[in-house]
Design a protein around this nucleic acid. Structure first.
Lengths: 197, 197
DNA sequence: TAAGTTAGTGATTGAGTACTAACTTCGTTG
DNA sequence: CAACGAAGTTAGTACTCAATCACTAACTTA
């Protein structure tokens, strides 16, 4: 297998592992094991753990963008909104590790930023803006609509991350105002506990 | 100093340290050093690192709730909304470590949930619902309004975490549709880079 | 003063960490 | 066939981490 192909498979494996444990909670050995390669060899494919995480974050944002592009292809306005929302809902319910990876990226970039390391932040901001524009266009260039779409998306991330089961009252407001996740609302990760209090 | 007082100071110190590095990125020694106590003694005050993080998360949610209660005291409707939004904006701009701690809690609970550990999740969901109700009441019991408030709050968390500077176009939609952070919008952690692309 | 409790420390342990250096294996090509 | 470069390994270093254990000094109570 060529080094480039190997790098690709390492990124995929690292996406899974970093999704589980985040940056500090993931060992390079775990990634290597998943790829089926020796751990030191990772350092020949990537200069270090940080660079690998960066590559993973970049890929995650790219995937996200492509996801929205495909979902909204040929649609616009309300139709595009519904299509993207449903597509996103399906993505994070069927692949909860995607949600976790996103959360890990947000928190890691925030930590890096306030630690004075802006390299990671620049990349993520660039990725986010591309994502923003990808959503903005099919929504008719409406800034408020796009912002609202992103905001409800972030709330969904949080609720799903916390493990609120579908049908819980905290999801209620989303069905109406966001026109999102009508029938597709589903708990991510955690199962039944109706109220939690 | 009594054990109870010590525990209190440990929680405060741990909030700062966990905000920086999250669960895996924070050593118990760093926390102990900040408290001014030996590292092994932490394990007399708390059964383990995990229990300490749990106590920190609980405290963070409590603080958050109290914050909104105080901000909305005696107000209702639009006035309460503005007061809570401004108060929250001030909190995370003046204390960026609060934002980071919240992000770390969300990601850690998500990881715990999908790893089958629901103890942490139950606590956080309970805390979130209390927070939700605390916001819900002054907003006149309007579910959509409350959901929208929470959603824009989560978007603000994400944008601030990524280090988008105030005035950046990604904040634009928030000024209008969310009636949040009009003049108070401010970058958290990261300084100027106008576009990032 | 004897008995017991509470707050706290120093030394250590065993597991895990990112990363390096030196070696091997093997298909391709002059 | 021999030389080479690229893919990949084994062995190892220097270090960090959570947690445990045995201990002590100060205070309280009777």
């Amino acid at each position: 297998m060529s080094a480039e192909e190997r790098r690709e498979s390492v990124i995929r494996a690292a996406m899974s592992e970093f999704a589980r444990g985040g940056y500090y909670g993931t060992s390079t050995e775990a990634i290597a094991k998943r790829v089926g390669v020796s751990q030191p060899y990772l350092f020949r494919l990537f200069p270090g753990k940080k660079a690998l995480f960066l590559a993973v974050a970049e890929r995650c944002l790219q995937d996200m963008r492509r996801h929205f592009e495909e979902a909204s292809e040929g649609l616009s306005g309300e139709e595009a909104l519904k299509a993207m929302a449903e597509s996103y809902a399906r993505l994070i319910t069927e692949h909860p590790e995607r949600l976790q990876l996103q959360l890990h990226i947000y928190v890691t970039v925030a930590a890096a930023e306030s630690a004075g390391d802006h390299e990671f932040g620049e990349m993520v901001r660039r990725g986010w803006m591309e994502l923003w524009d990808t959503v903005h266009i099919p929504l008719g260039g409406d800034v408020e609509e796009t912002t609202s779409f992103m905001a409800y998306g972030m709330l969904i991330n949080a609720l799903a991350g916390m493990g609120f089961p579908r049908g819980h009252r905290v999801w209620e407001g989303l069905n109406v105002s966001a026109r999102i996740m009508q029938d597709d609302a589903r708990s991510v990760g955690a199962p039944q506990d109706a109220e939690g209090a």
